[in-house]
Amino acid sequence: MIPIKSSDDLLRMRESGRMVAEILALLAEKVVPGITTLELDRLAERECKKRGAKPAFKGYGGFPFSICASPEDRVVHGFPDRRPLLEGEILSIDFGVVWKGFYGDSAMTLPVGKIDAAKQRLLDVTGQSLALGIAQAIPGNRLFDISHAIQSYVEAQGFSVVKEFVGHGIGRGLHEDPQVPNFGPPGQGPLLRCGMVLAIEPMINAGKCGVKVLEDGWTAVTSDGKPSAHFEHTVAITDEGPQILTAV
């Protein structure tokens, strides 16, 4: 069964989502050449404490950090470290909080200083694919209408969709039913209903779709070493249309 949130649940999720958006905005301001992802991780944890929230990822399944920091060819679940970021790189940050028993989850990919046109196009296409997927998150549609909107756009632009990792339901749990693939045929999957909340998160590779997981057991990288981008929002399905909960 896919959990249906009450109006009170959604109010709490809007607050947790707002915290995620605020903290990600602060992190984005700090993403410049020379900063380390470990510094960003510590900033995120401090900001959680200020708001009375907890980092959603730290300790989840044994994950040791507050953010997932994935530069360049790292797709998802990257470990923050002490390496200074370099001009021209891109960095994906995935971050969530839990507040009053409800989760918020969002991700973004950012340029580190000035990036080349190919990387900028990867970011633009990935961000647009998220917007197209969100537009399908309306009552009466099927889950894979979201998936198909993302895949068809991305592949038409010459990029590839990661298939090993997908989006998910979210609420009292960080990961709830259903899984939300970024690929699939339209008109298939569960019927979307008001009160469902989904974390929609396209992960898009500049090259081939294949990924592999490093020895740390978490960090996923592209199989061909080419860059990857990741954008995510927590989205409520409502009669008024999709409501992005992880927006300031």
Rank of each mutant, 00 (worst) to 15 (best):
K5L: 13
D8Y: 05
G17D: 09
R18M: 06
V20A: 09
A21H: 08
I23W: 06
A25Q: 09
A28D: 14
A28R: 15
K30C: 13
V31Y: 00
V31R: 00
V32Y: 04
P33F: 08
G34V: 10
T37K: 04
L43R: 02
L43W: 03
E45M: 13
R46T: 13
E47S: 04
C48W: 00
R51Q: 14
R51W: 09
G52W: 11
A53P: 06
F57H: 14
F57S: 01
G59K: 09
G61H: 01
G61D: 02
A69G: 10
D73H: 13
R83C: 04
L85Y: 05
L86V: 15
E89P: 01
I93A: 05
F95I: 03
V97I: 11
V97K: 02
V98T: 05
K100A: 04
F102W: 13
Y103A: 10
D105T: 02
T109K: 10
L110R: 09
V112S: 03
V112K: 04
K114R: 15
D116E: 08
Q120H: 08
Q120I: 00
R121C: 04
L122V: 06
D124F: 03
I134C: 10
I134Y: 03
P139I: 11
P139Y: 07
G140W: 02
D145N: 15
S152I: 00
Y153D: 03
E155Y: 07
A156L: 12
A156H: 08
V162E: 06
V162T: 11
V162S: 00
E164K: 12
H168T: 12
R172A: 07
E176F: 07
E176A: 07
D177F: 11
P190R: 12
P190D: 11
P190K: 08
P190G: 10
L192A: 01
V197A: 00
A206I: 00
V211N: 02
V213M: 15
L214N: 08
W218R: 02
V221C: 07
S228P: 00
S228R: 00
A229D: 08
E232W: 01
E232G: 14
T234Q: 14
V235R: 13
I244E: 02
